[in-house]
Amino acid sequence: MEDYALVMKDVCKDFKVLNRHEGLKGSIQDLFSRDYKTISAVKDVSLNVKRGEIIGYLGPNGAGKSTTIKMMTGVLEPTSGEILVNGKVPYKNRTENCENIGVVFGQRSQLWWSLPLIESFKLLRDIYMVPKNEYNDMIELYKSLVDIEPIINKPVRQMSLGQRTLSDILAAFLHNPAIVFLDEPTIGLDVSMKDKIRSLIKGLNKEKNTTVILTTHDMGDVDALCKRIVIIDKGTKIYDNDIEHLKSYFGSYRTLHMRLADDTWESMLIDEKETDIMDVIMRKQKETKIKDIRLEEISTEEVIKKIYEGDAA
């Protein structure tokens, strides 16, 4: 147990919602209705995360990802099951748990909107009671990892989305928490900014041995940062292992790219066990001229897509 930063055992979460009826008449009915139904957002999820690990926590929209994150951060209480963050039950002592975690929600800044970043940092230092030398070391570390000069004196409201995300990530690590939760940290960012953010996360994780739980829809994040991924769908955990393992599971899959006569690339995913690649090429060649061919291993994106679509079972 000691080695785990996060332990979840058979965690469930139910919500009670009003059964709504359709149409104008339904709306008037609902005004007096007491017809509730229970929705299980998370069902029997168990998970162990080692210290210093970065895991990708993936799943389609509405799969129960954010509900799980909210339980891990102590905001929501699970209906049943056990959660230990850093050896403690998060929702039982929210304040204590907050000292050990950092949270970043992409697009939702948690910093003081009108304060310059450095002032936000100073307030956070006070809130988390970070000793002065540790705080200074952290700022030095930040300086070595990213160029913070252009943003350090800028109010958050005047920052670009990328700068804001960067600031939020820095703020989340400031008190050197054991676990940091990153919810879609690269959403809406341009390619170079994404790169910057990823290398920052990687650098901080390496320097401070911080555990990172990353939820994202961007497989670029996963490829760059995570060895291990956990996939949740309809509230149930459907996959929990290394990406490499997953890829080898789909080992017989290849992506075939063909450049056609009009210079456009056509790609298709082929399971070698069932289809012979040469057959596909030859068939295509009868229709049109093929100028170039490239064969690739299945990409993470495609693996995840296959899993979401239910092909992994």
Binding site: V75, T95, E96, F105, Q110, I127, Y128
Partner: peptide
């Protein structure tokens, strides 16, 4: 939700 992630009241 952002107000719930800090170790203060």
């Amino acid at each position: 939700i952002k107000y719930c992630f800090r170790p203060v009241n």
